[in-house]
Design a protein around this nucleic acid. Structure first.
Lengths: 337, 337
DNA sequence: ATGAAAGCGCTAACAC
DNA sequence: GTGTTAGCGCTTTCAT
């Protein structure tokens, strides 16, 4: 048998002296194959360097053997970058154990959104991970309605019945603020994130819970809000300082905002941490490099990537995994406690 | 005609009252179709919500309609994260204009490397972008030899005939050091990157060129080396300080190393920038957030992502694009000039 | 346990 | 311009 190009099942079958069907069974690990057949087929496969043709396989199995990581990026990027990289890597690593592909999709314009929808809803992937940063996006609903296995990164704002994995934003924030309380701080301000995102809300909730747990009131004058950016953090800090010059600590709901707050505090002649203690959430961008390095709450992003992949694969396999996974966070105490 | 599941060409053809071939022509934008046929087909497509089946198409065209972004990550990650995110996003955005998919692949273990090789070499993707951070990797050679359209991110260390896009590492470094010279600094040290990577080498070359351009000698005592990490930068700075206490400026070949150097300088009681001026390469991780913010050389990563995609698509299309693209870098002057 | 045969949905000659 | 037809490489009944 003369073979040109990539070897096919046919070629393997010929070399192994069996039928295509048998080769297929061996390749797919069917138990209904004799040891002898299996051996000779595997030999032939190795010899020929045979690799199954995914397209042909997909065509008949109606599986895509791929999952999509969708970054629906219409708003500002927020802190998406470092986030995204770590999560994507976590997924890619998890998938590299299987023979599923990770397809990365970004939809910016409305036209692309349309295409994306069709693409996802028409079975071109077996499952979808949505990095759904914006307020409310119809996509999760549509996917769920269409029966496409879907996992969200971050709790959705609206109550929708979809699986998601999130960090323990509330618990982490609570720990951060408790840490400040334990150091004797009593006028603790917060720079909260956008309140139309569950991350923003949950981190504020943690702040409030910690205060209440200590029997302290939540003073609205001590609550600022920004958009997770450094600029926003700097401005919010300025506001807070104007409203409550006597604050002695700040919990910022992102490390970028913490860096901004630090800048403002410095500019205002406040000493950190002696005068004002500063703690941030996230441990990605900058906290290690500020002077002094900031105490932060760390979320296990790589683990989250792995976890969401696990959930997705289980769903695809027809199992019913825990629909909600909250990953623990960790307080990383540095100099400026 | 009763249709179940996803509509096929067949269904569209039936509804439009033409043959499958004509529908296929319309879908693929063939000019050999009458306007009337085209109209009715398009109507039918819209009505049915038809989306071509990629698997079936791939099977016959022998195109995969996808390109791979390969992060062959065997060594330490270096500064891969922020890098990677920006480049990946740039590619994804560029590809979202086409209907190519971006497949993200990470190979860690040797076994995965094997699989990856087979995958890429067996025509499962139409093209490959390699984020080839390590010293010398056989993969580029293999891909080129197999005729797989390939673009590298960063100049390969060994002279191999493959297309790549890189930042102007030498020029950027030269500008950085010239900047220091213009400020009257004369004992300028450098913390170079690993010399088994072209980034490391090129940035050192830029440093040397700037000094020579100013008629200054390159003093080996002023040249340190580290691994692009903050820790490494801090240690290298300590070394340099020991060898040449009188240095009055430092050019670090990455911003992470610059941050480390800053830490060491502070610890040694040196004032930045008055006593020692500090400039870093890259503008990704930390330079904006240090105190003072560092002057850095910025590379246009998103543009690089777009550019490499353009090159890859052109190659896939059978054109012969410029095999080497060097993106300009930009000196971002901040407080600590 | 194995083989024969029937497609999966699409494109590309090739006829007309 | 349009239709007919022959597969692309694989999985999967259904016989045997």
């Amino acid at each position: 048998v003369t073979v040109v190009g990539q070897p096919t099942l046919e070629a393997v079958a010929a070399l192994a002296g069996v039928s295509r069907a048998t080769v297929s069974r061996v390749v797919n690990g069917s138990p209904r194959v004799s040891q002898a057949a299996k051996d000779s087929v595997e030999l032939a496969i190795a010899e020929l360097g045979y690799v199954p043709n995914r397209a042909a396989r997909s065509l008949v199995t109606r599986r895509a053997d791929s999952v999509a990581l969708v970054v629906s990026e219409s708003e500002t990027r927020f802190f998406s970058d470092p986030w995204f990289a770590v999560v994507a890597r976590g997924m890619a690593v998890a998938l590299s154990e299987t023979d599923m592909q990770l397809v990365l999709v970004i939809a910016q314009s409305e036209r692309q959104r349309q295409r994306l929808e069709r693409y996802l809803l028409n079975g071109h992937v077996d499952g979808v991970v949505l990095v759904s940063l914006h307020g409310r996006d119809p996509l999760p609903r549509q996917l769920v309605a269409a029966g496409v296995p879907t996992v969200l990164v971050g709790r959705p704002v609206d109550e929708i019945d979809v699986a998601y994995v999130d960090a323990d934003n509330k618990g982490g924030s609570e720990a951060a603020v408790r840490h400040l309380l334990e150091r004797g701080r009593t006028r603790i301000a917060t720079i909260a994130g956008p309140q139309d995102m569950s991350v923003g809300r949950d981190r504020l909730a943690g702040y409030e819970a910690a205060l209440r747990g200590a029997g302290l009131p939540v003073d609205p004058a001590l609550v600022g809000e920004a958009d997770f950016s450094e600029e926003g953090g700097a401005r919010a800090m300025l506001d807070l300082l104007a409203r409550q010059p006597h604050l002695d600590a700040v919990f910022a709901a992102s490390d970028l905002m913490a860096a901004g707050a630090l800048r403002t505090l410095r500019g205002a002649g406040r000493r950190v941490p002696d005068d004002v203690a500063l703690v941030g959430f996230d441990d990605l961008v900058t906290s290690q490099h500020t002077d002094p390095p900031l105490t932060t709450v760390r979320q296990p992003l790589a683990d989250m990537g792995r976890e969401m992949t696990r959930m997705l694969l289980a769903t695809i396999a027809g199992e019913e995994p825990d629909p909600v996974v909250i990953m623990p966070t960790e307080l990383v105490v540095r100099a400026s406690s």
